[in-house]
Design a protein around this nucleic acid. Structure first.
Lengths: 200, 200
DNA sequence: GTCCTCGCTTGACACCGTGTCAATTGACTC
DNA sequence: GAGTCAATTGACACGGTGTCAAGCGAGGAC
């Protein structure tokens, strides 16, 4: 209950992270994670109690490990709305391949576990708030496309960054990281930024 | 083995469809489906063998029930590329809420079952082919946006129509059907169609 | 009317993954 | 050497999937 070593905890989280990277969410067993961490199955239960709790902890661990807040809130350095949008989308483009597997596992777990469902909803809401902030920055500049209401623009950006998208494009079609990042950036601009962009 | 009634089969499929509509994919048990169909659990196994096979059959049943091919291939009536795009996106906007739950369940099953994974990949490829056809129509007109290669445009359209998107917007944010359909149509146009559209 | 077959039911069970428990080990401290 | 702490070992309950064998009721054939 109250006395587990932080090092062991970290080893378990790292093992879970590594195994979930492949995208086989539901197929990753508690015993697989334990073996990968070089521990007994019971050690894992000692530290996390349930599979759902471990998945939730793993997403939080990754966020912390990659210092997500710092990456996703670069508003101070951005001078314009478009820069702010680029920074946000770019940060996500870097983060998504890391979080993809874990997030997918958490999403699947949501079907059967209420805690996991709550954690998933919270992640989704946080993500949408970030999108809303980027849209607000465009709006403040007057560079938001008039084609959509701010709410719609927020939801579109959110959709664009959805983990599921990344998964079917990377895993199933083999987009490399730099190429997809570039595509995400161009798409976000074209969708959301007002501008008569004329090229042939 | 060789002697099950088609009526019973249909009742099972309809029951599965109804239960999966809620989006609780993994939480729907074989026994739930049997009870809903007014049959014994074994009747379900008699007809489909495994849960994965039932999910695959359910997606095919829905396609057939809704005559998906007819809905998604309206190319004969479309006169321009943009009309073709609108028709395709519009058809998906109508179909997605119906297929959403079943597709999610199939996707989750893919983690642990190879047959389900193959069925899921096939659905994804079919979907992408439809997107490619719509993009080709735009291209033939010269109305495809120069911002993206045809391959990228195809993948973006595919992403836009992804079931996961629909789920987080409808289930989690409560978009009503007509509003989302309209949003999908406008988004597809803005993303893919070349045009200096100037409104304030 | 009885027999047969067909389609489903009943009840039992093996298997596997999750989650729990109690007893044990081994290392480190005092 | 005693005590403590973190993890191990091995056992087991539970629930869901999948399998099996025997049974049973309704309809058709004769």
């Amino acid at each position: 209950m109250s006395s587990e070593s932080p090092e062991t905890r970290t080893r378990i989280l790292a093992a879970a992270l590594h195994l979930l990277e492949t995208g086989q969410g539901q197929a990753v067993r508690m015993s697989d994670i334990a073996r990968k961490a070089g521990l007994s199955r019971q050690a894992v239960y000692l530290h996390f109690g349930t599979r759902a709790a471990l998945l939730i902890a793993t997403t939080l661990y990754l966020d912390e490990l990659k210092d997500v807040r710092a990456r996703l809130v670069p508003s101070r350095t951005a001078r314009s709305g478009v820069e702010r949008l680029d920074a946000y989308v770019g940060a996500w483009a870097d983060y998504i391949p890391e979080i993809r597997g874990v997030a997918k596992a958490l999403m699947a777990m949501s079907d059967t576990d209420e805690e996991a469902a709550a954690a998933w909803r919270k992640r989704m809401e946080d993500m949408r708030e970030g999108c809303a902030a980027a849209v607000a920055a465009l709006r403040a500049d007057g560079t938001l496309s008039p084609d959509f209401t701010p709410g719609e623009a927020t939801d579109l950006l959110w959709t664009l960054l959805s983990v599921r998208n990344w998964e079917h494009l990377t895993l199933e079609r083999g987009y490399a990281q730099p190429r997809y990042k570039d595509l995400l950036l161009r798409t976000a601009r074209r969708l959301l930024v007002r501008a008569p962009r004329s090229a042939t």
